[in-house]
Design a protein around this nucleic acid. Structure first.
Lengths: 267, 267
DNA sequence: CGCACCATTGATATGGATCAATAACTGTGG
DNA sequence: CCACAGTTATTGATCCATATCAATGGTGCG
């Protein structure tokens, strides 16, 4: 159903462009600035498929067959370790893509992808992606931007795990959610269940729970999957130089980071 | 000195191509399959510079100005956390490139790069790299392959830290060194000092030291910076499905993985 | 209503960090 | 060639943070 794929895709792109978050947090620009010809070539062989909850879309150790674009839904990518435990690498929702990087790795997929909720996915064959990347440098550069962003967040994950306490990791995660959600509201919603977030942050659910109760003392109220901040600067404790680049308050007189006010509290 | 850069570069490429390790472990193919024109365009603005030990080549938080290719020497890339500690992201030596990924990230560099020993580096201006990527899809795809490989090893680092014991992480590291060094000798040399390796593996030097003494019981003798394996299968305990793809013994009857022999010992 | 599943909370255990002391090695200058 | 200082590695003793174990409470769904 190629035509159908294109229709929905165009819809999606338009929606995305309107939705660009904070200007610079615009989501993964896979299709950005592509000419009509490239789009056609990419999408004419693509499919749209619906998946149920907890379905394995890609198996670890299998060659990747498609690049996936989440039209609606939620997906996690993870790795199984020898003992069978899972380590979540990314948690994705509407508008995200996955397997873009894996397609350009040699060998089999080092990750598995699994739906968290019923999801509708656009599937672009891996071979078409590779072919198009060799023909259209704009597309290749879009891929580069996406993969480097993933790589950067993987680096942040690494030193977060090694150098931050569970409380700090959680605060950092909340801050990023807050910024992604436009940061005009004092409410932040948690898009995934807590045990997922715990795994993603490299801690056990119990530890996350305890970190949450510490959060309350810092002015973050947790009610089920919704956080309520005491004020706009509650999460500034957890900000760093990289993240502040995405914060609209940064470099304003109101930013505690900028005035140095809250750094006394930071630890 | 553009001509000089090209001369040494050509030398280097030839050397690399002869040196390809195990066929599939061939190092970062930045210049692979580029036409003469692309090479000229990339290198005509490049420089070669010598750096001393422990020099900061790139500062964290600064915009990246160059892509670096290590002609000779050793470099680490790392991140400083708030408390000032460093987390090593990669440890690089002759033939490696760095900052390829950072050049395509928006904003400033999330990592710092520092020489470990006196090093001679080929420096290609970031702007030239970006321009060339937009003009030459082959070059863009080479970059994609490099960055995705880094991303993959970052993922391995993440679940190594979260799911493996220090001993296992060390064994895995030894195994990879062994494979990179051609695995025809039972001697493995450690290319970096132990405190660096410890940091890279997410543990303290004391912990590495203790893990080393456990290694002796498993048949790995450590003498200064040189390991001696008891037999070719000593490190098989630490192998996983991904790594076995790079092992010449895999799928042979001699592989303990394949026969299931050593998996009993694994834990 | 009752059965899963998820989250929370408390008690305990443990692995790796930290602290501290010593030993080995590196390089430098006399 | 040796003496010395500075760095790096090892080893032992202790401590602490987070995992683990265990019990309870809450929530949603059939």
């Amino acid at each position: 159903m190629p035509e159908k794929a294109i229709c929905i895709f165009i819809d999606e792109v338009l929606r995305r462009q309107r939705l660009r978050l904070n200007g610079n947090l615009e989501k993964y620009p896979l299709f950005k600035d592509l000419d009509e010809e490239s789009l056609q070539s990419l999408l004419s062989n693509s499919y749209i498929n619906d998946f149920g909850t907890a379905q394995e879309i890609v198996q670890q150790g299998e060659p990747p067959e498609y690049l996936y674009y989440i039209i609606t839904g939620g997906v996690k990518t993870l790795r199984y370790s020898q003992n069978g435990e899972e380590t979540i690498i990314r948690m994705l929702s509407t508008g995200d893509t996955f397997m873009e990087a894996v397609i350009f790795m040699s060998g089999h997929s080092p990750v598995c992808a699994k739906t968290l909720v019923p999801s509708r996915l656009l599937m672009i064959p891996a071979e078409a992606v590779r072919r198009q990347a060799l023909h259209d440098p704009q597309f290749a550069c879009n891929l580069l931007r996406i993969v480097t962003r993933h790589y950067k967040s993987a680096m942040q994950q690494i030193d977060g795990i090694l150098a931050k306490s569970p409380l700090e990791r959680l605060g950092y995660y909340f801050l990023q959610q807050h910024l992604e959600q436009g940061c005009d509201s004092l409410d932040v919603s948690l898009p995934f269940q807590k045990s997922m977030i715990a795994n993603y942050l490299g801690m056990k659910p119990e530890t996350l729970s305890r970190a949450l109760s510490q959060m309350k003392n810092l002015g973050v109220n947790v009610d089920h999957a919704k956080l309520t901040l005491k004020d706009a600067y509650t999460l500034c404790h957890f900000c760093d130089a990289e993240t502040s680049q995405n914060c609209p308050h940064a470099n304003h007189a109101t930013c505690p980071r900028h005035t140095g006010k809250s750094c006394a509290n930071c630890h």
